[in-house]
Design a protein around this nucleic acid. Structure first.
Lengths: 192, 192
DNA sequence: AATCATTTTTGACATGGGCCAAAGATAAGA
DNA sequence: TCTTATCTTTGGCCCATGTCAAAAATGATT
C-alpha cells in the first residue's frame, strides 16, 4: 500500500526507513466513489490526499456560473487546496472525483506531527508548493499568450494520460475555452 | 533603514529584537537606477530583494516576442524569481526597475544562514510563497473568466497605487491585452 | 437490449479583442 | 527650453472564439 508514496517521498529527500515507516502510520486509507466531492466551496480543506488510484479534478465556479478547472490529478499526485488547508480558511474551489478513487489522507494534525518529528518532510512539502507555483506561472503565461490550438497541443504533450480518462469539456474548461470550440479545434487538427 | 522590513517580518511572526538585529546584518543595501535589470532571462536569480523605494516589474517574453508582465512591485514588497533562486536554475523572466530603486538584498548564502540561525524565518518565507500561490491562482481564474473591462476595474481596485506610477501599456501586458485595446477600454469607461 | 442522460459535433451568427497606421500627447534628456 | 523618444488615442478592418440550438454519438442504468 505504501510503496508508491514512499518512493515519491524518496524522490524529494533521502529519508531513513524508519522516517518513512512513521510517515506511513500517519496516513489514512480512504475509498471515495466516482462523482463525489472531497471538498466544496466554502468548506475548510482538512486534507492533503495522495492518489493511489483514480482521477480527480479541482475547479472553481465563477460569477457567471461557469466552471474553470484548476487541476487534474491521477495516480502518484497529491491533491488539496493548500491555501485553505494551511490557513484554515474557506476554500474557493471544488475537489471532485472523476473516477472511483483510493487515497492516502494526511490531516492537518498528522502533518504537524510529521513535520515536528521528521523535519526533513518540510522539504518535500516546500518542493511541492514551489513546483506548483512554477507550473502555475508558466500556465498563466501560456493562457495569456498562446492560441487555442497551441494550448490544446501543449496540454496533450504535458498530460498525455489525461485526455483518455476525462470528458473533453473538462479539458476545455481547463484551457479556458468553450467545449464547442475545443471540438472545432480538434476537427481542424485532425483535418491536417 | 531597517524599520520597515522589520515591521514586515513582525507581521508574519513575533520575532525577538535580536533575531531581527541578526536579520538586518544579513541584508545588503543597494541602489539600482531606473530602467535597468536586476535579472535577465537565462540568468540564475541570486537575490530576494525587499523594496525600500521605487517600482519594479517582472515579465516574460513569449515565442512571438510579446511581453507578459507577471508582477509589479513597490515599497514594502519583495521581488525575486523564487523558482530560479531556490533551484538555482536559469530564469524565464526579466526583473526590471521602472524607477530609481533602493533595495535590501538577501543572497542565497545569507538566507541559508538566516534560516539555520532563526528557524522562525522559515515561516515568513513560506507565507510569502503561499500568498503568491493563492494570488496567482485567483489571477488565473480572472484571466480565464472575466472580460477586459472587469479585469481592468479589478486591477484598479487591487493595486490602486500602480497606475499612477507605471506606463499604461505595462498594465495592458499584465492584464493580457494590447495597449490599444486598453486605451479603448478606458475610453468606454470614462464615457459613462 | 432498451432507455435515458450526458457528451460531442455541427452550423449560423455575433462580438471581443488583435493588428496596423497615423495623429496627439507626455515625458526624458540635452 | 527645445528636441526627441516614448506613450496613448483613434479609426478601420479582420479573425479567433463565444453563444445558441439541434443533431449525432457515446455511456450509464435498468
Amino acid at each position: 500500500m505504501f510503496e508508491k508514496i514512499n518512493a515519491y517521498a524518496l524522490r524529494c529527500m533521502p529519508f531513513q526507513p524508519d522516517d518513512l515507516a512513521y510517515f506511513d502510520t500517519l496516513l489514512q486509507y480512504k475509498k471515495q466513489p466516482r462523482k463525489t466531492f472531497l471538498l466544496q466551496e466554502g468548506e475548510v480543506c482538512q486534507f492533503e490526499a495522495y492518489i493511489l488510484k483514480g482521477c480527480i479534478r479541482t475547479y472553481h465556479i465563477d460569477q457567471s456560473g461557469a466552471e474553470v478547472t484548476l487541476q487534474f490529478a491521477i495516480e502518484d499526485w497529491w491533491v488539496s487546496d493548500i491555501t485553505s488547508f494551511q490557513n484554515q480558511t474557506p476554500s474557493l474551489v471544488y475537489i471532485e472525483t472523476l473516477e472511483d478513487c483510493e487515497l492516502l489522507i494526511l490531516t492537518p494534525e498528522n502533518k504537524e506531527k510529521l513535520l515536528a518529528t521528521v523535519p526533513g518532510f518540510e522539504r518535500m512539502f516546500r518542493l511541492m508548493v514551489q513546483r506548483n507555483l512554477a507550473q502555475l506561472q508558466e500556465r498563466l503565461f501560456r493562457t495569456i499568450s498562446t492560441t487555442a490550438v497551441e494550448k490544446y497541443l501543449d496540454f496533450l504533450n504535458r498530460y498525455p494520460a489525461i485526455p483518455q480518462r476525462v470528458a473533453q469539456h473538462y479539458i476545455a474548461s481547463y484551457l479556458g475555452f468553450s467545449p464547442e470550440f475545443l471540438s472545432k479545434v480538434r476537427k481542424k487538427l485532425s483535418a491536417q
